[in-house]
Structures are given as structure tokens and as C-alpha cells.
Design a protein around this nucleic acid. Sequence first.
RNA 1: GGAGAAUUGGCAGAGUGGUCGAAUGCACUGGUCUUGAAAACCAGCGUACCGCAAGGUACCGGGGGUUCGAAUCCCUCAUUCUCCGCCA
Length: 422
Amino acid sequence: MLEIQRLRSEKESVIEGLKKRHFDATEIVNSILSKDEQWRLEMAKLQEVSSKMNQISKQIGFLFKEGKAAEANEAKTQTSVLKTVEAELKEKVDDLQAEITELMYQLPNVPNELVKVGKSEQDNETVFEHGTEPDFGFKAIPHWEIADKFNLIDFELGVKITGAGFPVYIGKGAKLQRALIAFFLDEAEKNGYVEHQAPILVNEDSAMGTGQLPDKEGQMYYMPVDDFYLIPTGEVPLTNIYRNVILPNEDFSIKITGYTPCFRREAGSYGKDVRGLNRLHQFDKVEIVRVEHPDNSEKALNEMIDHVKGLLEKLGLQYRILRLCGGDTGFAAAMTYDFEVYSAAQDKWLEVSSVSRFDTFQSTRLKLRFKNADKKSQLCHTLNGSALALPRIVASLLENHQTENGVNIPECLHKYLNFTKI
RNA sequence: GGAGAAUUGGCAGAGUGGUCGAAUGCACUGGUCUUGAAAACCAGCGUACCGCAAGGUACCGGGGGUUCGAAUCCCUCAUUCUCCGCCA
């Protein structure tokens, strides 16, 4: 959520910035500001009335104490009108507040200055490329065929147990998952991220805090009996660790990581996009999350990018980095870099990581602040990224490291496995 | 799952309808004293919103209610502790 103060003071630049998303915010912003003005007006009235009520109540207290019951009762009669007025104003103020909040929820984050105007993924900029397409010397086969051939993953079995999109990993397939998780966590730790194991069911406040609610309600699995949501990403529990937190000074840089399963309903997905491991309802991911001073946010983002680069290079994968255009940047993000690995077998780029900075968009909702030099509370910046999501990495490894009679496992994983080839 | 007790400021802890945003202690910040430190003493010390300011409003686990007035009474939800039951 954007800060209302920002709308008040930088209305034009917010509207201008949101145009990069092809989002015309003029109407919403104007509506917010006019309601905001009204709200302040009514608020002032309400406070005045409340003040008067408080005064009278205090007086009544005094009068009773002094035994002047008659005068006290007389004063009481004065209050009934005020009370009605107060209730009316209160309702007006609350309604306005609710309307403003609802409108605020509709505004996406303002893109960073580096982000280009654009509508869809066609407009994303490639900012970095690494590696070359592997030369197999034979027709590369897609990961689902490899997985089937070596009995690494059983998609049908998952259908029996749960449904489509819940694969069962078997033998070397399961071990590979475990090795990747361990590798990612160890690498994150080397770069200063503190490992956490957090709940994968979260309450409504948490889902609100990171922005999954109210915008993306349909994306999450929901458990009505207990009013919990299954997390769509580790970002939710990890970032919410810092909900309602005021850090004591401006000398901080919080770096945390965690492995979690992730659950996404992915309603409406179909066809080759969901083939094999390309899109699942349940998958594993190691997430890195940072809470930073606003001045440090850019540096943090670059460090995260370098971190992910390192992982992909150690895994020996050819990849490119895209800076998403305005229209393709997620609702809450100010800037996002996607990492994609090329799959010759599928003849397509697979998104394997997404690293974003949110500036204060999440911390507004989270109420995540720090005390600045003037001892004032100021909103922190939050960032997060996948480092990495497992399924497409597994797909890429199987596809890009395939040989005529198997798959070579990259060296960085050897110490976690009792085999080096599949 | 059942029964009971509890939830107050960074921490500890008082307050059971009226001048309480909340005693007191500790911690913390500034000052006095001291060669320096400690001790002692003095002062300050929550969050948010409205306002140029003076000031005002809201907040005692969350939400709702009673009342002229609620930290205090009622309802409800959550959490913690104790006992019983069940259990990886």
C-alpha cells in the first residue's frame, strides 16, 4: 500500500509513475484525496465533540464527588444530543476511512525510475546474459520424459493422492530435491542470511501484511475451519516476522532465508505451460528476504541479484536476467528482476527466480519501521527473492545437463548426494 | 478436547467505574557532582492521527456492548499458564 502522505504531497509523480504500468490512477487518486480531505474535516469535528464530551464527563464526576447530584444529573441531559452527534460523526469518519483504504488497496506500487513503460512480458528488458546453449549433438528431450525414464518423478501418483500439480519425487529425484534445498540454504548462509523455519499456514493479518490479500485472494488455498491460508511463497511468513516492529535505530540490515513448501491454486492454467514441472500447485523454494534502510535498498537488491547469479553459475546453467517493464512488474513491487534459464528441449525460457524491491509498499501494511536519527519512526524497505524455486531448476538441470544415456549432476551438489549421475 | 487462572508502557508490577495515558521499581537518555568512573541527586523517557502552532483525539491482548464516563462491568475471539484427557 502506498502512503497517503505521498499521495498528498506527490500526487502528480505517483500518477505519472503508475502510467508505466499502463495504470491510469487519476480517478482513484483524486477520489482518495477528496475523501481524505473530507475525512480530515469530519475527523476534526469528531475530535471536537469528543473533547467536549470528555470535559462534561469529567465535570459530572466532580459534581457527584461533591455531592451535587442534582447538578450532575442536569449535566447528563446535555450529553444525549452530543452523544448522538458523536456517534454519527464516528460512523462518517469510519466509513470514509474504510472507503479510502479500499481505494488505496487498488493502487499498485509506483515503479522505480529504471523501470520502462510496458504492457506485457514482450516489453521486458534483458539486462544480463550468461553462458551459451548446450550443444547436445542429439535431440534434447524434455524433463518430464527424463523424469519418467529414470523414475525420478511420478506425476500420476500425485494425481491419485491429491490431484494434478502435486508430483511425487522418487529415489534420486527426491534426493536431488533435498540436495538442492541444502545447497541453497548453505549458500544463503554463506552470504549472511540467517536460516529460519517458519509456519507454512498463516493467518489473515499475515496475508494482508505482504499484500497477498486482498488482491490475490484466489491464488491461495484457504482453510475456512481455522481461517488460515497456505502460503504461496516463503516471503509471507518470513517477512511477517517483522510485522508491527519498530527497529531501535537506523543501523540495521536484516537478511533472512528459509526453505518452505509453497502452495498455489493456479486456477485457469492449462496446456503446455503446466506440463511436467513447469507449473505446480505445491513446490519447494528457498527464499531470501531483506529489511533495509531506504538508503540501502538499491545496494541490497544488487547483492541479491549477485547471490542468485552465483547459484545459477554454480549449477552450470545458461541464464539471462530481465528487468520487468511496468506492466509485468507485480502489484506490490517497485522493481523486479526475473532470472530465466533457456530450455533447448522445450525451446523456451523458464523463469527460475524473481527478485524484487518493494520500497515501503509492504512496510506500510506491515507497520515495519525504524527509529531514524531524529528518533522519529520511519518505514523500512523490504525486498525478497527466490534463491531458488526448485521445480524449474530441477527441470533445467535435467534438460540442460542431459547426456545420451543420463544426466550429469553439477559438482556443487555432489557433497549432498551419493551419486554424481542419473 | 474438557475445567480453571491470566493478558496493563522496553521489562517487572500497581490500579476493580470518575481529574488514569496510567503509581512505583528497573532499564534507557540528558544534566549536576567527580581528575575519571561508580554512587547519589535533578530532569526526560510509549504509539498513531488531526493541527502552522497552542492543543486535541485514540490506544491498558483483538473486536463489540453497557454508561454522562471503562484499564476497571458484560459479550466474543485470540494467546499464555495450571490440571485432566489424547498424541507424533
